[in-house]
Amino acid sequence: MLTLHSVTKQFPHQPHPILNRLDFSLPQGHSASIQGPSGSGKSTLLTLIAGFDKPDSGVIRLNELMLSDMDEHAADKFRRQHLGMVFQAYNLLDCFNVWDNVTFTARLKGNFTPNYATELLGKLGLSDLRLRPVAELSGGEQQRVAIARALCHKPTLVLADEPTGNLDEETAAQVSRHLFTLCNQTHTSLVVVTHNQSVAQLATKQWQLLHGQLVAK
């Protein structure tokens, strides 16, 4: 279970907190989409959940882990072991091929199993591209690799920040279906920040971030 309670975050030189006593919860294995206007604090929210930054006040918890209280070492460990991330700009390791990219997180965590990685590739339609350098892939293929990498180490939670932002409509639909389906199948919680209504609708619950608060849609 992912829980955010009364989380507040204000940046210097800003008149108001970008997140203002925000509350949120997500049961394990469920998915949530978060929408909102530009600058509403969606990425900030993900940043706090991922442990990249700390809230000014409030509590963020994932199961037993107090994410809001982690030091840097603990945050790194948390990300290695429990967190998967999918970015808008794919952000693959461009010196690696598909296989090395996908298995990277699992090797970091130490729970790499070739069969599972192969299975993931199969489900994402990447089996034939296993040894291809990622720079040679299309946008959709790269994003699928990113999804596979995010799930290969069996994280508790996946955060996706505009995962279809750089894709065309058809590819976006395909990728987002993969993402939600796989998370569902692996009982992995998923939080997706998106502008795309079609993607947002795939989530178990939809949220709107307005005036520093999450409002269920």
């Binding site: 991922a50 990249f52 840097e72 070492h73 790194d76 460990k77 948390f78 990300r79 290695r80 072991q81 967190l83 991330m85 970015f87 700009a89 952000n91 693959l92 390791l93 461009d94 990277f104 997180t105 970091l108 965590k109």
Partner: peptide
């Protein structure tokens, strides 16, 4: 820095 940010996000320490 983009690649390094990515690695940090994947849990690699500074």
């Amino acid at each position: 820095s983009a690649q390094l940010s990515l690695l940090r996000s994947l849990g690699v320490s500074t």
